[in-house]
């Protein structure tokens, strides 16, 4: 049972880590790194470390992503892809 939880979270984590490196949009990469942190906190819980899981979810997925997003705004990389109608 716990093995399957670990398997799913490792797959999600590594997939999101690949997405961080290969996404063009920096905001999307920030969201992906937040997903990496969340999957990592699930894995910490499976590994019997609830304290570390709480810290990773609060600090890694929360504050760290906010700091990154605010910095992206400062350096002019805050771009939302606009939806182009394909006629």
């Amino acid at each position: 049972m716990l093995f399957w939880v670990a398997l799913i979270s490792v797959v999600v984590m590594l997939g999101a880590a690949f997405a961080v490196l290969f996404l063009e949009n920096y905001l999307a990469a920030t969201a992906a790194i937040s997903v990496v942190s969340l999957a990592l906190s699930v894995l910490f819980f499976v590994l019997q470390a609830p304290d570390v899981a709480l810290t990773e979810a609060a600090v890694g997925a929360g504050i760290s992503s906010v700091i990154l997003a605010l910095t992206l705004r400062r350096v002019g990389l805050w771009r939302i892809e606009t939806h182009k109608d394909k006629q």
């Binding site: 049972m1 716990l2 490792v10 590594l14 880590a17 499976v46 590994l47």
Partner: peptide, 20 residues
Amino acid sequence: TESAGIIILSYCGAIGLILL
């Protein structure tokens, strides 16, 4: 056992994250 599977999985995840 299940624990050995979890250990191998998390080592693989850690190595993958470090390499990436």
